[in-house]
Amino acid sequence: MHYVFQFGVVQDNWRILAEGALATLWMSVAALALGLLIAMACTYAMGSRVRALRAVVRGYIEVIRNTPLLVQLFIVYFSLPALGIRLDADEAAVLGLALNFGGYATEILRSGIEAVPHGQVEAATALGLGRMRIFRHVVLFPAIRVSYPGLAAQFILILLGSSVVSAISAEELTSTVNSLQSTTFRSFEFYFAATLIYLGMAAAARLLLDTVYWAGFTRGRPGLGGGRA
């Protein structure tokens, strides 16, 4: 083995790496926000009386869950322009990640909703609440509490999985490292550094999400305390 590791060049480029990491965080959070909107709309549609609507949502979930994220991104970025939908790489990346997150999140929210006893909906109906208000206050919010741990885990998967958007030339940590290593020829060092940054971001996100869960959902609820999101 004649290779000499040189991490100095990684240190020299720390500012560029930090920018890439921020782009990854921003992209993941944007995908989370958009994906949650998609998931809420789909969850609402799943409760619809229109069978065709339910079938469309079911199909969307099955397609998302049974095809690779990378291929989903290729379709959003390369195939959609044929239909006249033209997005730049960063927009396509956020949309692709959001569609992916939305599919899983719908499934997670749905099982959360199934955990809400039907008697509560009947009670709310008896109190004369409208459909929308019942959905929001009686079904959705308690369901979010039950679904939170699953959604948090799914967000971490998106944060780490977002590294593949480099393949559609979106700008984030992995694409930053790709170009740094190609000009410095210090491939292993840069990928090693990027791996550590991802590890740190995932750990920080986990800590934050757990704290939010603890502060927002478990206070004053014996039996839920100390739970890990």
């Binding site: 780490l160 999985g161 480099s166 990928y191 791996t195 991802y198 995932a202 750990a203």
Partner: peptide, 13 residues
Amino acid sequence: GTPLLMQLFLAFY
């Protein structure tokens, strides 16, 4: 806790 893609690059290089 790390992306699969990074694991691939690290294994490769």
